[in-house]
Each structure stands twice: as C-alpha cells, then as structure tokens.
C-alpha cells in the first residue's frame, strides 16, 4: 500500500483549510482555535495543529490531505507533516502583504519537498486583490528557481472543480517526473566517438 500524502501549505488565511474541506470525502479533522490576530487575517479561527482530509481510492488506498497551520510559530508542525508528503499545494492569498515574497518564502521553507516531489501554486482571493498576476509570480520564481517550471493557477479554494484541477496537476507532475530516464547512447554513437 503506497502512501499518498499531499500537503497544503501557505500563509495564514490563504485558504488551506477551505481547500481541504472542498476536496475531502470524509469529515475533515480540524484543529481551529479562536484567532487573536484579526489584523493579519480577518477570520474567526485559525489552524493550530493540522487539517486532515481523505480521498478514498479503494479498500487499500487513499490520498491523504494534510493542511499546515499557516503561522510560522507552528513550524514544528511543518517539520512533522512534510516528512511523509509526496507533494505540496502552496496557496498564497493575493491580498497578503507582499504575496510573491510569501510564495518564495514558503517554497524555500519546503525546498526538499520541491526537490523530491512536486509543487503547484494556487493564488487565492484574486476577487479581492486582482494583482499581482500569474506572470508576475512566474517571473519572480524564475529568478529564485530558474531550473523549474512550477504550475501557477489562480484559484478560489471554495470551488471544488478548481481545487481538483490543482490537485490533478500536482499528481500529474509528480508522476511524469518518474517517467523519464537518462538516455543510453546507441551503439553507432559510441563507435563514432
């Protein structure tokens, strides 16, 4: 039985809990606490340990969806949760302070996951803050990580179909990476050299 663990990361208020609620087939295990930082994210509660949801594949297998607490003071949970993860959905809300900076920060924080698995980025709350654009994010990431092409989508985590597109893109990315091998030179080429 393979472990399919997908991590939802990103800053406080990006929509991680909302996204897992939309994707999960089970009642999501939530660890919300009353939010005392209304100036950072104007919402009643914030995740303080994890979110947990599932998509059941069959009797044997499920895709496990874990959400991190967005606030850095819970980074010990990040360390615990990222160990088993195969890939990460990074959500960044466009109305955050310096949203592109936040995206780069979280990519760096989860760099090993970025290296071993896959990453997709969802820019949320674009109805509230239309800019920066996908192109702006892509340009900044190309500077920070020139070797990788990361899918960047605008998403509304409250829309199930959009979250599914994001999730399927991540899975496609992780899987196709394993489909390539180093080319073995043909005999004629070796002779020619």
């Amino acid at each position: 039985m393979a472990e399919h663990v997908i991590l939802f990361t990103g800053p406080m208020g990006a929509g991680k809990t909302t996204a897992i609620e939309k994707l999960s087939e089970i009642d999501v295990v939530r660890t919300e606490a009353a939010n005392t930082e209304r100036q950072v994210a104007d919402k009643a509660t914030t995740t303080v340990a994890l979110d947990y949801g599932e998509i059941v594949l069959d009797d044997q297998d499920k895709v496990r969806l874990y959400g991190i607490p967005g606030q850095r003071r819970f980074d010990f949970m990040w360390t615990i949760l990222k160990e088993r993860a195969k890939g990460m959905v990074l959500l960044v809300h466009n109305d955050a302070d310096d949203p592109i900076g936040r995206a780069v920060e979280y990519l760096d924080e989860f760099a090993d996951l970025y290296a071993k698995g896959g990453v997709v980025i969802g820019i949320t709350r674009i109805d509230i803050a239309p800019g920066p654009s996908v192109t702006d994010y892509a340009a900044a990431l190309a500077v920070a990580h020139p070797d990788k092409i990361v899918p960047i989508y605008t998403v509304d985590p409250r829309q199930r179909d959009q979250m599914r597109t994001l999730l399927m893109t991540l899975v496609a990315n992780i899987e196709t990476r394993d489909m390539f091998v180093e080319r073995v030179p043909q005999r004629e080429e070796l002779v020619a050299e």
Binding site: T31, A33, V48, A49, L50, P69, R73, F74, F76, M77
Partner: peptide, 10 residues
C-alpha cells in the same frame, strides 16, 4: 505556547 496550543487542539 505554540506547541501547547497544537497539542490541545489535537
């Protein structure tokens, strides 16, 4: 404080 908060919620 952060850890206790997580433990309590879990």
């Amino acid at each position: 404080a952060s850890m206790s908060s997580s433990v309590q919620a879990l």
